[in-house]
């Protein structure tokens, strides 16, 4: 049925026959021994999260920081925000500046991408804890400062591995 030429095509396949008693016993044994193998040689991908944190990839769309010197106050970021997380306000007379509400932000990065002067940029930090909801509304001072992750976390680099799937390589912080 299947055409031989390359390109997308359908191929009809069949479910195997029902298993006989012997096949069943064999598959039981196989499944149990695979379980035993994994029990003897566990292959874990758990990241012990609050203690270990992954280094986010280079282009990660993390928290957004404003470079106040570059900003021209064009309001495009506030207009493009799909979640209405960014608002403009008068930092000084005739000087509009954006502020962000992380309660609403969905990290789509539209604001960063629309900024005509590259005044907004992502930092590879995602997990910050706020004590109350008011703190999540950043003012100009916090919005222009790069957020820092807590110091006690061990940073690990996530490496895609042929054997283990994901491997976490500790990053030695100098």
């Amino acid at each position: 049925m299947a055409e031989t030429s390359a390109g997308p095509r359908y191929s009809e396949r069949n479910v195997e026959e029902r298993m006989g008693l012997l096949d069943k016993a064999k598959m039981h044994a196989k499944a149990l021994s695979l379980g035993m193998l994994r029990l003897a040689r566990p292959q874990r991908i758990t990241l012990r999260y609050p203690l270990e944190r992954p280094v986010l990839s280079e282009g990660y769309r993390g928290m957004i920081v404003l470079n106040n010197d570059k900003c021209i106050g064009c309001s495009l970021c506030a207009r493009v925000c799909p979640a209405a997380a960014m608002k403009m306000f008068n930092a000084a007379p005739k000087k509009l500046r954006p502020v962000i509400n992380y309660e609403r932000c969905i990290f789509c990065g539209y604001c960063v991408d629309i900024c005509p002067v590259e005044a907004l940029y992502h930092v590879p930090v995602h997990d910050l804890v706020f004590e109350n909801r008011d703190d999540m509304v950043f003012d100009l001072e916090t919005f222009t400062k790069e957020p820092e992750e807590p110091e006690h976390v061990r940073k690990v680099r996530v490496v895609i591995d042929e054997e283990k799937g994901l491997r976490y390589v500790p990053v030695n912080s100098e």
Partner: peptide, 8 residues
């Protein structure tokens, strides 16, 4: 691209 869509 060269791929098959399985049909059962």
């Amino acid at each position: 691209l060269d791929f098959e869509v399985p049909i059962y």
